[in-house]
């Protein structure tokens, strides 16, 4: 299945955000949720079909304009499933751009690597100087009491024209050493939050195997590994909140 979805969030000029484009197709359906009129824009991804399965080629484009504030979530976990072996790995490519003064919170439910899946998740985010980004990705290694399928995630986040964070994680039977003590240490869930922009929290230990650390550029990474997704969520959920508007913006 080949599908694409597109979100463009723009300022309505009165302190609110409107979707000038909100277009999806199964299995990447988009629903506007939350309060309408004058506030931030919230969009939920709604899975319109099982999967992704082998052979699926999915693409989501997100654009956040100057002064716009967009939150993207999903109604349920994404379950990567096996498919016909002769087909290529399933693939979800997410591209996002955030303009100066724009704010994007990406906080979908986790990606679950079901046994036998082969999935590639490629993320490329470009944030202009003065933009704000909170980018969350969680992964769960198999369903309950199940061995993990193969998933590779590739992330590139650029800020003000420079690579801020470039990371890949490979799990499952085709990734040697992935469950060993250097990578996930037998943990069944891992998650990250990349925060970038003018206003950042301080470095902190988040309890257990979870840390919030300053990147070399203008951003922070929270990284968590846990026996299950609850441990990861406990560490990372508090970071996935949009910063408040400044007084100046509220007055405008």
């Amino acid at each position: 299945m080949k599908a694409s979805a597109h979100i463009v969030a723009e300022s309505d000029g009165r302190g609110g955000t409107r979707p000038s484009v909100l277009r999806g197709e199964s299995p990447l359906l988009l629903r506007r949720t939350g309060r309408r009129g004058g506030g931030d824009l919230t969009v939920h991804l709604v899975g319109g079909a099982a999967g992704p399965l082998r052979g699926d080629d999915l693409r989501l484009d997100i654009e956040v304009g100057p002064g716009a504030r967009l939150t993207v979530r999903s109604v349920a976990a994404q379950l990567a499933l096996p498919g016909r072996l002769e087909l290529p790995a399933s693939r979800l490519a997410v591209r996002a751009t955030v303009a100066a003064g724009g704010t994007l919170l990406w906080a979908p439910e986790p990606l679950i690597a079901a046994a036998g899946c082969h999935h590639l998740a490629a993320t490329e985010v470009t944030v202009e100087r003065g933009g704000t980004l909170i980018w969350r990705d969680d992964i769960v290694c198999g369903r309950h009491a199940e061995t993990s399928g193969t998933v590779k995630t590739e992330v590139l986040i650029r800020y003000a024209g420079r690579a801020l964070y470039r990371h890949e994680l490979a799990i499952g039977p085709s990734a040697p050493g992935w469950s060993g003590p250097a990578v996930l240490g037998g943990g069944r869930a891992a998650g990250t939050v990349v925060l970038a922009g003018p206003s950042l929290p301080r470095a902190a230990l988040l309890g257990g195997d979870a840390v919030l650390m300053p990147l070399a550029g203008p951003g922070m990474l929270a990284s968590a590994v846990g026996p299950d997704i609850r441990a990861v969520a406990a560490a990372l959920d508090p970071l996935c909140v949009l910063p408040g508007r400044t007084v100046e913006k509220l007055a405008a």
């Binding site: 690579a163 996930l184 195997d209 840390v211 590994v225």
Partner: peptide, 18 residues
């Protein structure tokens, strides 16, 4: 450079900070 491999190991990062 942006396309070069970036294979990460979460526990190496977390462990180093701890």
């Amino acid at each position: 450079v942006d396309d070069l491999p970036a294979a990460g190991a979460p526990l190496l990062d977390i462990g180093a900070e701890l």
